[in-house]
Amino acid sequence: MGYALFKKSWKDIIFEKRNKEYGAYELREEYDGYILRALIIAVIFAFLSIAGPGIYKWLFPEKPFQREEMIEVDLAKLPPPPENPNEPPPPPPPKIELPKVETIKFLPPEVKKDELVNEPPPTIEEVKEAVISNKSEEGEKGDETAIVVEESAPVAIEEPKEEEVLLYAEQMPSFAGGYKEMMLFIQKNIVYPKEALNMGIEGKVYVEFIVDAQGNLSNFIVKRGIGYGCDEAAVSVMKKMPRWEPARVNGRPVKLKTSIPIVFKLG
């Protein structure tokens, strides 16, 4: 009897000699399964809540954010679009012909001697039929308005202005062959000043210059230097450079001001 007691579960002991078809026994019989399933589901949810973001980032990696540079462009400083030499000039405006009105010259009277009078004043009948003006012309009678055409003054032709120096263009100027070729040229032609070598001076010299429409370099100015002869050496190597590819706006070469750093480094 004692051995059989230990083999029985607590549910069998409680519901011994009772109606096991009752719902309470069935609920207690399936209780362990419910607890196990609830525990498994809770563990799964806990795992997903912790590891879910990492799994999502692994499956769908984020693209690196690229910050766009905003460049301010002053439209007033941009040159006008190039003229097409093959395009025919616009036709002249149509000439408007005004109707001619008969006028008669009648100026304020002046007291003169008879022998100095070249043209006698008009009579009253002539004045009635024509319009008073500063000169006599033939035309239609009866119009009360006289149209006097004055000769226009000659138009002054402005001298061409000096080409404007831009600070930005659609296509910026560049060394022939690209940036790497420019660095090789500087390394081959630059002379490290002895004073800077003795003092162990290193750094960058920023040289500003102008690239004209033909690619020539001029107007060299050291905007920020390090001294000890490095500023002069940077300008010297810039003057040795060949022609650059000029800046372009709408496909037309323009003059532009820019700057580059010349690096001085020991070792």
Rank of each mutant, 00 (worst) to 15 (best):
residue 83 E to C: 01
residue 206 Y to S: 08
residue 2 G to V: 15
residue 93 P to M: 04
residue 229 G to F: 03
residue 224 R to E: 15
residue 204 K to E: 10
residue 165 V to W: 04
residue 69 E to P: 02
residue 85 P to F: 08
residue 158 E to W: 01
residue 213 A to D: 10
residue 213 A to P: 03
residue 257 K to E: 08
residue 194 K to H: 03
residue 105 K to G: 03
residue 67 R to K: 15
residue 49 S to M: 08
residue 146 A to F: 05
residue 210 I to R: 03
residue 18 R to H: 13
residue 247 A to R: 05
residue 22 Y to R: 11
residue 235 V to L: 09
residue 153 A to I: 10
residue 47 F to V: 14
residue 224 R to W: 04
residue 245 E to Y: 11
residue 20 K to V: 15
residue 253 P to A: 07
residue 66 Q to Y: 06
residue 192 Y to R: 09
residue 192 Y to I: 12
residue 84 N to I: 05
residue 200 G to Q: 13
residue 248 R to W: 04
residue 157 I to G: 00
residue 36 L to H: 06
residue 252 R to Q: 15
residue 56 Y to A: 04
residue 263 V to G: 00
residue 15 F to T: 14
residue 104 I to C: 06
residue 181 E to M: 13
residue 249 V to K: 07
residue 173 P to F: 01
residue 7 K to H: 15
residue 204 K to M: 06
residue 28 R to G: 04
residue 3 Y to P: 10
residue 227 G to P: 07
residue 114 D to N: 01
residue 84 N to C: 12
residue 181 E to C: 04
residue 130 A to T: 10
residue 35 I to R: 08
residue 254 V to A: 00
residue 253 P to T: 05
residue 231 D to A: 04
residue 85 P to Q: 06
residue 88 P to N: 02
residue 151 E to D: 10
residue 202 E to F: 05
residue 249 V to Q: 15
residue 180 K to Q: 13
residue 15 F to M: 15
residue 2 G to E: 14
residue 106 F to N: 12
residue 194 K to Y: 01
residue 91 P to Y: 01
residue 120 P to W: 10
residue 209 F to Q: 02
residue 228 Y to A: 15
residue 148 V to M: 08
residue 242 P to Q: 04
residue 121 P to H: 02
residue 60 F to N: 06
residue 112 K to H: 05
residue 259 S to Q: 12
residue 197 L to E: 15
residue 206 Y to P: 07
residue 223 K to V: 15
residue 120 P to L: 09
residue 74 D to T: 09
residue 177 G to I: 10
residue 120 P to S: 02
residue 182 M to S: 03
